[in-house]
Amino acid sequence: MRRTLGTISAIAVALGGSLFAAAPAEAAPSLRFDYARYDSPGTDNRSNKSLNAEWISLVNTGRTAVSLKGWKIVDRSRTYTFGNVTIAGNGGKVTLHTGKGTDTRTQLYWGSGNYVWNNTGDTATLKTKAGKTHDTCTWKKKTGRTGVAC
């Protein structure tokens, strides 16, 4: 057996390989946009209630919790950077409301006094803390619809 293994090792090295498998690359977190409520119900009067009825959510379909610290949700003209936030695994969700409020584990507030998402169409981009695009959610206005599943 030792001689066979030695022969296999010699062949592998001669072919530029190795008997040792490379360590798997760290898998990207199983995060994605879940839903975007881009048109808050009622009149767009910029009240905090109306602003907070505009929101976008993320879902973690992986098994383990993921730290969002340093990740960003980007619109054409605005960027929200996550602080010390962790999204639970197995379907955990985090919702980011446009207006002001007190953050909880699952409900976050952008703190904007203006609407972020365009009713006529827009794209939300989720970026890793390294700045790489991880997911996007794009929509166009459909009559009678105020949101879209991403």
Rank of each mutant, 00 (worst) to 15 (best):
H97P: 00
G131Q: 05
D135Q: 06
N119F: 08
K69F: 10
F33W: 09
L68A: 04
N84S: 11
T123E: 09
R105Q: 15
T125G: 02
G131H: 08
Y35I: 03
C137Q: 08
G89N: 05
S67P: 01
D39M: 02
N90Y: 06
V116C: 08
E54R: 11
R78Q: 15
V59F: 03
K140F: 05
T120F: 13
T81C: 03
V13Y: 13
A124H: 05
T106D: 13
V66D: 01
G101H: 13
C137N: 09
L58Q: 03
R105I: 06
Q107F: 10
A88S: 11
G42V: 05
S77P: 00
L58N: 02
G62A: 05
R37T: 00
E26W: 03
A149M: 02
A27H: 06
A149W: 04
L31T: 06
N90G: 03
V85D: 00
D135W: 00
K129R: 15
K93I: 06
A130M: 10
A12C: 14
T102R: 15
S18F: 01
S18I: 08
A124Q: 08
K132W: 00
S47Q: 12
K132Q: 11
G113K: 14
W55P: 00
T98R: 15
R46L: 09
L5I: 14
V148M: 01
A27V: 03
P29V: 05
I8C: 11
E54V: 04
R145C: 02
V85K: 14
L68M: 12
T7K: 08
A53S: 13
C150H: 11
G62R: 04
L126C: 09
P41D: 12
D34K: 09
L19D: 14
N118D: 15
R63A: 10
I56M: 07
K49M: 11
I11K: 11
V94T: 05
G6Y: 05
T64H: 09
V85L: 01
D122C: 05
K72F: 00
T138R: 15
T120K: 13
C137S: 10
K72I: 04
K127Y: 03
T106Y: 07
V13Q: 15
T79F: 05
K140P: 00
V94F: 03
T106Q: 06
F33D: 01
T136W: 08
T128C: 04
L51Q: 08
T120L: 13
R105K: 15
A27N: 10
T43G: 06
A28F: 05
S47N: 13
D44V: 07
C150Q: 07
N114G: 11
S50V: 08
T125V: 15
A14D: 08
T120W: 15
G92F: 07
I73H: 06
A88G: 10
T79W: 07
W110S: 01
T86F: 01
R145E: 11
G6V: 06
R46A: 04
A25E: 13
S77L: 05
K129A: 05
F82N: 02
A65S: 14
A22I: 02
S18A: 11
D122S: 03
G131P: 10
R105Y: 04
V66F: 02
T136G: 07
T81P: 01
P24I: 07
G91F: 07
V85S: 04
D135S: 11
G121F: 13
L15M: 14
T102K: 15
C150E: 00
G42I: 03
T106V: 09
K141S: 12
T4K: 09
